[in-house]
Write a protein that binds this DNA or RNA. Structure first.
Length: 294
DNA sequence: CATATGTCCTGAGAGC
DNA sequence: TGCTCTCAGGACATAT
């Protein structure tokens, strides 16, 4: 589930590791099928030993540890991955331990219950030339022009298209629903019929929703999986307007009720009353002009 | 080329 | 109670 706000919260949480040196990287004994680590663990350890962590970055939903020799450790949490500076929720799902010295923390852990996450080491420049090159602009900085340029000709439904990381990087299922709600756009709309003003509303809503979610340290859903680097919960789940709220009255127009449909094998939640295929519900216009998240 | 579908994974919760 | 089944959705491989 970690999307841009959760990964950004992880990034901020592990900033204390900047300046530390890698003592060793090891895969804890683990009965589960190991997660995907490339290169294999012994080579990862050998190539990073003694290197200093120079910066912590993020591209979309990926966390980047930049080393002082320009190598890059890239962590993809995918569904249930967590980056932690404290004891993990369970021992058996601990996937990687990066031992550190010379700073305030002695280890950085990667924990992943479902094991879909990945860890990759890239040679200098290799990430940008391969993976990075295929990612769209980070969702925090996306503009209406960029959305229209990337998706304006697409025949896909807009909710499905917003999940395409090569168009915009960082939006996942949960935030796509919240963004389109704030933008007042029906998720079933096909991209190639959206108007400029609809793209403008989507771009603006993207910034507002993601910023607010980051301020709230992301969303810890009812399964409780997502945590920040210190094992604390996020609070943006308390601000969700539509996600996992099927059947509720719409918090904006009072009607709704919030509907759940399936698009591309994933749940979409929306208000059929004020998320429109054309035109704007008056309260949508007001919220966006006031930079409000509602 | 663009778009659609299948795959991986685990544990929570539903239903019997 | 205890079993089986379905579902959740990240990114990518494969199919259309």
């Amino acid at each position: 589930m970690p999307e841009l706000p959760e990964v950004e919260t992880m990034r901020r949480g592990v900033l204390p590791t900047v300046g530390s040196r890698i003592v060793a990287i090891e895969r804890p004994p683990c009965l589960r099928k190991p997660i995907s680590i490339r290169p294999r663990i012994d080579a990862l350890d050998r190539r990073t030993r003694g290197r200093r962590v120079e910066a912590i970055g993020r591209r979309g939903k990926r966390l980047l540890l930049a080393l002082d020799d320009q190598q890059l450790i890239v962590i993809e949490p995918r569904m249930t991955g967590l980056v932690l500076l404290v004891d993990p929720p369970t021992k058996e799902h601990l996937r990687l331990r990066i031992q550190l010295s010379g700073g305030p923390v002695t280890e950085l852990l990667f924990w992943d219950r479902r094991g879909l996450g990945t860890v990759r080491l890239f040679a200098p420049g290799e990430f940008d030339a391969t993976v990075g090159d295929r990612l769209g602009v980070d969702a925090l900085e996306v503009t209406a022009d960029e959305l229209k340029r990337k998706l304006g000709e697409s025949r896909r439904e807009v909710k499905v298209a917003l999940l395409d990381q090569s168009a915009v990087a960082g939006i996942g299922n949960l935030y796509a629903a919240e963004i389109l709600f704030l933008a007042g756009v029906d998720p079933r709309c096909h991209c190639n019929i959206l108007t400029r003003s609809q793209w403008q509303r989507i771009a603006k809503a993207t910034g507002i929703v993601l910023q607010k979610a980051i301020e709230n340290e992301g969303s810890t859903l009812s399964d409780g999986t997502y945590r920040n680097a210190l094992n604390g919960e996020g609070s943006y789940q308390n601000h969700h307007r539509v996600y996992d709220r099927a059947g509720n009255h719409c918090p904006r127009c009072g009607r709704g009720p919030i509907r759940r449909i399936v698009q591309a094998q994933r749940s979409t939640f929306f208000c059929p009353s004020c998320q429109r295929k054309r035109g704007v519900h008056p309260r949508v216009a007001t919220a966006l002009s006031e930079q409000s998240d509602f």
